[in-house]
Computed example of a mutant assay.
Amino acid sequence: MHRRRPTVVYVHGNGNKVRSGLLKSQWDQALFGRDMADTSRMAYWAALQYAHPLPDFQVDALDGGPVIEGESAAAAASGMFDPPEEFVARTVGEAWRETGAPGLEGRTPEGPHDVAVEGALVGWLREMTYLAETLGEAETGGGTARTGDGGALPLEVLPLPRPLRTAAFRELVRRTFKDVHAYFFGGRGPAIRQVVEEALPPPADGPLVVIGHSLGSVAAYEVLREHEREVELLVTVGSPLAITEVQDQLARPPAVPDGVRAWRNVSDLRDLVALGHTLRPEYTPSELITDALVTNNSENHHGISQYLAQSAVREPVDRTFGQLA
């Protein structure tokens, strides 16, 4: 006797979106290549932040779409779509000079150490960009550099003092990601999590797959952590859950939510939202987590359609459906 087909619940990320039904269909097409009807659901929380959805088939710049007039223009003005090394070097420099870089004892805001460390940061980002492109060229089959499923990829996220690593993320959030600020600091978190909770089908409806992008991965994680739902597969893409400053804001210490049987975390090394790329060192039990690096060729390397099209995302979802259908 076959078990019931699983339900897929999507949780979108930052920025305004097209209307809910169309957004769900776009995710279905990117992930499955077809509309999944009532097999998939969208936890659509954009309406809490934006009075009107985007016009049909317009993609918000924060989702990797083109920069246009209006809200997306603010992202362009902030420099979000500069080359990553230019953006991070500039924002780190600004944050350092504004704050004095707490925790960087012995360094002065205008001294030679600034030049040396910022130069090292630029070099690291350029190396990460080249590595991401190299991974893309080398992809075959599963095609990703993986940790947690038999492969090993020694990866130091950034071999520089933590304040420099996180200054870029703080500045990125302050300039462009008002939804992240609203979630953590503006009192919007409970309402967003309620939308996610209401999108989850009753446990009796059968197996569950949850896919969260960007801030949506945080909301999905916190809901599952709180309610301990049985989940066959949790997929997080372009997620900031590895960043210490994000972990500091979580209601509970980092851990795989009880009931989650497998967790696949996918990111592009150039995705500035996912400055940390590995969850296994932070969340236990680590054997349930697989971290995968992919090439996301959207303009900001954070686009959801490009993530969902990756074999590192499609393969575990397809396998879960095949095993449970």
Rank of each mutant, 00 (worst) to 15 (best):
A219C: 13
V313Y: 03
M80H: 07
W263S: 02
M36W: 07
R319S: 09
E86P: 07
N296Y: 00
N296R: 02
T91V: 06
P190S: 10
E156H: 12
F321K: 04
V122L: 10
L324D: 02
V223Y: 08
R174D: 01
Q26V: 01
V294H: 02
L125W: 01
A61P: 00
W124A: 03
A46D: 13
T320E: 06
T290V: 07
F185T: 04
E299S: 12
L155E: 02
N296W: 00
G150V: 15
G189W: 05
W27M: 09
Y130V: 09
V210W: 03
P55V: 06
A309H: 02
G187N: 07
E282K: 13
P240Y: 08
A37K: 14
W27G: 00
V218T: 11
L125A: 04
V11Y: 00
T147G: 09
K24M: 00
H277K: 14
H113C: 08
L155I: 08
G259S: 13
T284W: 12
G216H: 00
R264H: 13
E198M: 10
V235Y: 07
Y221L: 07
S78I: 08
A37L: 13
A77M: 14
N297P: 09
W263K: 11
S72L: 01
L279N: 11
S267R: 06
L324G: 05
V115L: 11
D56A: 15
